[in-house]
């Protein structure tokens, strides 16, 4: 009985936060519009931008970041942060590469080991955060170092070239990584907006103390979110390793910031309690299109970084502005 009551309460919190239907569409419309503007700019500025190969390339490149961004969205919604995703991706990839190259294990077993590595890292993050009530920033910062070091230990600091044995996953122009990423985005959004777990996540991010006082233990929820993030990061590792056909212990450097930037562009609040997986996906696409377009125009790396930084800040300002407009008429 008590649980259903709490569920109802959590649901009503969520319902109040859910924007009305037109605003909901407007949310995505804004992001889609921003993306369209970028596409038009690059279509005019760079040759061969509107080609099938180009979109296929971009689609394949965004898949790993997208999957990590889904996990990051969940973590940010519970007002947490996971700085370890880049290193964990390198470690999971390193495990995959070492299993196949050094021990000659078949692909399915290597993938299982890779996913297990991701889950263990997520579990460690979650357990330390919930058991000692440490800020996730500190804990995952520690994990960032641990996982990176472990990735180098596992591979002996050598890039492992695996070859087409793992490349089959990425396919040739078959877009499998992208399809996997899109499925994960859809599932992630469904979990977030249609399940009890998803509503608890939003509730924990909104007011953890209130959740606890309502008789729901927030710790398993937080633990679950960190494990999920680790698991998704490992899936991203499988995909990126398959795409490169090699496992690099230095892979994923700076991935955490790229993922956080994408999620924040998508309007997810760093303060927790608000966010959308689909919007994060748009955030990833905006950054990817920007990077690919600028590279094609031959813009130098430093300029590219300046422009990307400006776009991130502009996007968040726009998002704030949009939310303020929506809030002001009804105090």
């Amino acid at each position: 009985m008590a649980t259903t009551e709490n569920e109802r309460r959590a649901t009503s919190i969520e319902r109040r936060r859910l924007p009305s239907m037109p605003a909901f569409v407007a949310d995505y419309l804004g992001m889609a519009l921003a993306l369209a503007v970028l596409l038009v700019i690059f279509g005019l500025a760079a040759g061969n931008f509107f080609t099938l190969t180009n979109f296929r390339t971009i689609a394949n490149q965004v898949s790993d970041t997208t999957i990590v961004a889904v996990g990051m969205t969940f973590v940010l919604i519970i007002a947490g942060i996971d700085l370890s995703v880049g290193s964990v991706m390198a470690l999971a990839g390193a495990v995959l590469g070492t299993c196949m190259v050094r021990f000659g294990l078949p692909l399915p077993i290597a993938i299982a080991a890779c996913l297990a590595a991701g889950i263990v890292c997520g579990l460690a993050n979650g357990l330390v955060v919930t058991r000692w009530r440490l800020p996730p920033f500190i804990v995952t910062l520690g994990m960032l170092e641990i996982a990176r070091g472990a990735a180098h230990l596992v591979t002996d600091s050598q890039t492992k070239y695996i070859g087409s044995a793992v490349g089959v996953i990425a396919g040739r122009g078959l877009l499998i990584p992208f399809i996997v990423a899109v499925i994960i985005v859809i599932l992630g959004q469904l979990v977030l907006s249609r399940t009890v777990f998803g509503r608890y996540i939003v509730a924990v991010g909104t007011n953890e103390e209130a959740v606890r006082l309502s008789g729901i233990d927030p710790r398993p929820i937080k633990l679950g979110v960190f494990v999920l993030c680790g698991f998704l990061t490992a899936i991203a590792a499988v995909i990126s390793t398959a795409r490169m056909e090699a496992a690099d212990p230095n892979a994923g450097a700076g991935l955490e910031l790229r993922a956080i930037a994408a999620v924040v562009i998508g309007g997810t609040s760093l303060m927790g309690g608000r966010g959308s997986v689909v919007s994060s996906f748009f955030g990833v696409l905006i950054i990817a299109v920007l990077e690919a377009g600028l590279s094609q125009m031959g813009v130098g790396e430093p300029t590219k970084r300046v422009i990307t930084g400006c776009v991130i800040i502009a996007a968040v300002i726009l998002d704030q502005y949009r939310h303020r407009i929506r809030k002001t008429p009804k105090p």
Binding site: Q61, T159, M244, S295
Partner: peptide, 13 residues
């Protein structure tokens, strides 16, 4: 590796 991959993809296009 990853950085080069992204740059090369763009150059190829």
């Amino acid at each position: 590796m990853a950085r080069a991959n992204q740059v090369v993809s763009a150059i190829l296009t």
